[in-house]
Every structure is written in structure tokens, then in C-alpha cells.
Amino acid sequence: MRVLLVEDEKLIADAVKVSMTRDGYHVDWVADANSAEDALVTSQFDLVILDLGLPGRDGLSLLRWLRNTDRNEPVVILTAREAVENRIEGLDLGADDYMTKPFDMKELLARARAQIRRANGRSAPRLTHGDIEVDPAAHTVTHKGEVVEISPLAFQVLVLLLERKGRVVSKDDLAESLYGWEEGAESNTVEVYVSQIRRRLTGDLIRTIRGIGYIIDKD
């Protein structure tokens, strides 16, 4: 899952990025609203974590712009502004959740998982497909009740395809979710992880749409 973190305090940004990366997310960090807008115009994200007290143009103006587009990324506001009026304004402008600094990192991760679930029309904490069950919080995969070990990046691919079950996900979208703006990923990286999932689980779980991408069909 790919997250856009909009935060001008480097220490906070580094802490969030490290924790979310360990939890299986790819985090792209920008420090101001204009850079965030550029990122949102050019890339797809599963979640936006947005500070309000940004230099120059504040976070609320970015949120207002975002909700006036056809983009629908869930937004979690993360800010030092404690006034109730700030929370109300942010929520009324279209934020999906609100956390006040200082915050607990585990709570932020839980709220991120909840918003991604809701954005994909899912309320249950686990992803299931036939006799396969994936727990994004615990980072576990079971098949017919038996734990299956797959690499962290293969796990991310599996979660993304299950979150978008019934929809074709392009190879580029999968690669961006894994690596974001980073360079150096080989062209066959996504195929390697898809092959690993097929070997460890079942060969017909992921269907290849030639020239487009991959899909896990609905049950």
C-alpha cells in the first residue's frame, strides 16, 4: 500500500515513515502543500496523511483542493492544532480521520488500516478469498488453516490485489505501490512476487491479463 505523507517536521516524518515502512507500507514524503499537490496529480495513493501547519499554504487548502477533484484517497489529518474548530473544519472539508500531536504510532497504523479498509468497501479486518485468509495487521497468510510464509513485498502485492478483488491492477500500479518514486527496480520484479504467491498458495489465485496487469477474481 502506498501512502503520501505531507509533513514539514522532519523528525516526525522520519518516525512515521520508519514505522509505516516496517508495517508494510511504501511512504512517499513531501514537506509542503504544493509538492503534495504535484504528487497527487501524477501518482496514485491508498492514503494521505496530512499535517495542517505546513509552511506557506496550509494543509486545509490542500484538502479543499483534493476534495474538489475526482480523487477519493482517504485523508488522515495529523496536526498540533488542538482546537475543536480546527477538527470540525478539517472533517467538514472531507478529512476521514483526525489525530492530534503527540500521537501513538500504533494507533496511527490502526487508523491507516481502517481507512484503507473503508476506502475499499470492506469492514472486516481480514482479507479472505476461498480458503485463503490474510491479516494485514499481523502480516500473516493462511491457506486451509496452515500458515504460509511469503516475502514482505510479495505480501504487499497479495494485499493490494485482494483489496481490489475483481479489478485489474496494472503492473505499473503494483510497482508504484511497492517502490513509489524510488528507482532501480528491475522490470520483472512484480512478476517475481506474483510467481512466489502462486507457488506458495495456488496457481489459479492470480490471473494475468496479458499486456495490462493482474486480477484476483471475485469469489
Rank of each mutant, 00 (worst) to 15 (best):
Gln115Ile: 01
Tyr214Pro: 01
Asn72Val: 06
Phe103Ser: 06
Lys144Gly: 05
Glu82Thr: 14
Ala80Glu: 04
Glu107Gly: 06
Asn86Pro: 00
Glu73Tyr: 02
Asp173Ala: 14
Ser19Ala: 15
Glu146Thr: 13
Gly56Ile: 04
Trp29Cys: 07
Ala80Thr: 08
Glu133Trp: 03
Leu93Thr: 08
Asp23Phe: 08
Asp32Asn: 15
Leu178Gly: 07
Arg199Ser: 14
Ala137Ser: 14
Gly94Lys: 06
Glu182Cys: 02
Ser61Val: 07
Gly145Leu: 09
Thr142Ala: 14
Asp172Cys: 00
Glu9Gln: 14
Ser187Cys: 00
Thr142Asn: 07
Arg113Gln: 13
Ile88Glu: 11
Leu93Val: 06
Ser19Arg: 13
Val169Arg: 08
Leu91Gly: 01
Asn120Tyr: 11
Gly180Glu: 11
Arg22Pro: 00
Thr128Gly: 12
Met1Glu: 06
Gly145Arg: 10
Ala95Glu: 11
Leu62Ala: 03
Arg117Gly: 07
Gly166His: 06
Met20Cys: 02
Ala110Phe: 09
Arg111Gln: 10
Leu160Cys: 05
Val190Glu: 04
Ser151Tyr: 00
Arg64Val: 01
Leu40Gly: 04
Glu149Met: 11
Ala80His: 03
Pro74Tyr: 09
Gly213Val: 10
Phe103His: 06
Arg164His: 14
Ile212His: 04
Val6Gly: 08
Ala175Trp: 00
Asp70His: 11
Gly184Asp: 09
Ile116Asp: 05
Thr128Ile: 08
Ile216Ala: 10
Ala13Val: 10
Glu107Lys: 13
Asp92His: 13
Asp38Leu: 13
Val48Leu: 12
Glu7Ile: 11
Leu127Lys: 07
Gly90Asn: 06
Ile215Met: 15
Leu50Asp: 09
Ala185Asp: 03
Tyr98Gly: 02
Arg22Phe: 05
Val157Ile: 15
Val148Leu: 11
Arg87Cys: 12
Arg207Pro: 00
Arg122Asp: 01
Asn34Pro: 00
Val147Phe: 10
Asp14Gly: 02
Ser187Arg: 14
Asp8Ile: 01
Ala31Ile: 02
Asp173Arg: 12
Val84Pro: 01
Asn188Arg: 13
Ala110Ile: 10
Arg22Thr: 03
Ile216Met: 09
Ile209Thr: 05
Gln156Lys: 14
Asp104Lys: 05
Ala39Cys: 12
Tyr25Ala: 06
Ser61Asn: 04
Gln44Trp: 03
Asp14Leu: 14
Leu50Phe: 11
Asp38Arg: 12
Ile77Asp: 02
